[in-house]
């Protein structure tokens, strides 16, 4: 069989997971930037998911990528971990 007649193997675009990612359900706590000026840019290298960006306009968290590990809040000032679920507790 000629090569051109072979079936096409499904393949993904490089970085296809970035668009598809939604890690909101993984989170128990969510990082919230309280003081943008105080955020240490080193957290952009400490974040395992590349979810936080720090530039001239300030710091920003991409909540589609963030898994809520809390490294950024521990390593830098100006970031606070806020619980995702704030409803009634102790039902069970």
């Amino acid at each position: 069989m000629a090569v051109k007649n072979l079936p096409i193997v499904p393949s993904g675009d490089p970085g296809a997971l970035v668009e598809a990612a939604n890690y909101a359900t993984w989170r128990i706590f969510r990082p919230v930037i309280t003081e943008s000026a105080k955020v240490n840019p080193i957290v952009t290298l400490y974040c395992p998911d590349g979810a936080i960006t720090v530039d001239e306009s300030g710091a920003e968290v991409n909540y589609k990528l963030c898994k809520g590990c809390g490294i950024c809040a521990k390593e830098s000032e100006g970031i606070q971990m806020v619980p995702e679920y704030t409803g009634p507790k102790g039902v069970f």
Binding site: V18, A21, L45, D49, G50, L65, K67, G68, C69, I71
Partner: peptide, 18 residues
């Protein structure tokens, strides 16, 4: 690193990104 399927707080992903 973006959207990797590792655990949260994964050390290997941090190393890879850096």
């Amino acid at each position: 690193g973006q959207g990797n399927v590792g655990c949260k707080g994964c050390g290997a992903a941090i190393a890879g990104r850096q």
